[in-house]
Design a protein around this nucleic acid. Structure first.
Length: 193
DNA sequence: CACCCGATTATCT
DNA sequence: GATAATCGGGTGT
C-alpha cells in the first residue's frame, strides 16, 4: 500500500476559493476495513456565506452547521433525497462559513470496491459527479462533520496539476455569475466540460 | 402539520 | 433535452 501524507490544517485555513483551486490534484483517501479507496480531485466548487448559492447563506441551521464548524472537517449533505455530496470546510479566519464541494474524482486505488459500490456503470462513470463519488467511496451522511485529520478519511498531498480551468458553477439557481468552479483541463473524469 | 424545494442522477425520447 | 425518483430540512399556518 502506498503511503499517503495528510494535508496540514493550515491548508484549509485560507480563502475558500483559493483552497478549492489548490485541492485539484490532491487525493481523497478512505480506508474501508482492509481496503483503501483513493481518488484524485479533478473538479471542485467554492461556496462561502456571502454567496446566495451557499447553503450557509441564510444562516446557521442544524443541517448546515458543519459549514460553520472547524476547517479541515467535512460537510456532507443529502441532495434531492437520493445522493450525498461532500464538502471540505475551508475558509479564511474572518469568514464565518464556507467550504469546497468535491465534484469529481479520478479513481486511483480500490477500483474493485468502487465498482461494487456502483454496480453496472463503466469506470469512467464511477466518480465523475458529486453524488457518484460519494457512492463509489462509501461516504454517507454519517461522515458529516468528520475530521479530515483522522486515520480513515482524509485528504492527502499530491502535486498540483499544470492546467486548471475556471468556470461558473453547475446546478445552482442563484449566484450563477460567479466563477467558482475549478477543474483539471482535459481530465476525462470531470463531470462536464 | 402541510407545503416546497434542491450544490443530482439515471433513463427515457 | 426532459423528467421521475425521493426525502430531510426550512418555513409558515
Amino acid at each position: 500500500m502506498k503511503k499517503y501524507l495528510p494535508l496540514p490544517l493550515s491548508f484549509y485555513q485560507r480563502p475558500t476559493e483559493e483552497v478549492a483551486r489548490d485541492l485539484l490534484g490532491k487525493l481523497v483517501v478512505h480506508r474501508v476495513g482492509s481496503e483503501v479507496l483513493v481518488g484524485k480531485i479533478v473538479e471542485t466548487e467554492a461556496y462561502t456565506i456571502d454567496d446566495p448559492a451557499c447553503h450557509a447563506y441564510r444562516g446557521k441551521t442544524i443541517a448546515n452547521q458543519s459549514l460553520f464548524g472547524p476547517v479541515g472537517h467535512t460537510y456532507v449533505y443529502l441532495s434531492y433525497g437520493i445522493h450525498y455530496c461532500m464538502n471540505i470546510v475551508s475558509r479564511a479566519s474572518d469568514c464565518p462559513a464556507g467550504g469546497v464541494l468535491v465534484r469529481a474524482l479520478e479513481p486511483l486505488e480500490g477500483l474493485d470496491l468502487m465498482r461494487k459500490h456502483r454496480p453496472g456503470v463503466t469506470d469512467r462513470m464511477l466518480t465523475n459527479g458529486p453524488g457518484k463519488l460519494t457512492q463509489a467511496l462509501g461516504i454517507t451522511q454519517k461522515f458529516d462533520g468528520h475530521d479530515l485529520a483522522s486515520h480513515d478519511l482524509f485528504i492527502a498531498y499530491a502535486p498540483a496539476p499544470e492546467h486548471i480551468v475556471t468556470t461558473t458553477r453547475i446546478g445552482i439557481s442563484k449566484g450563477q455569475h460567479a466563477h467558482r468552479r475549478f477543474y483539471i483541463a482535459d481530465n476525462p473524469y470531470v463531470s462536464k466540460q
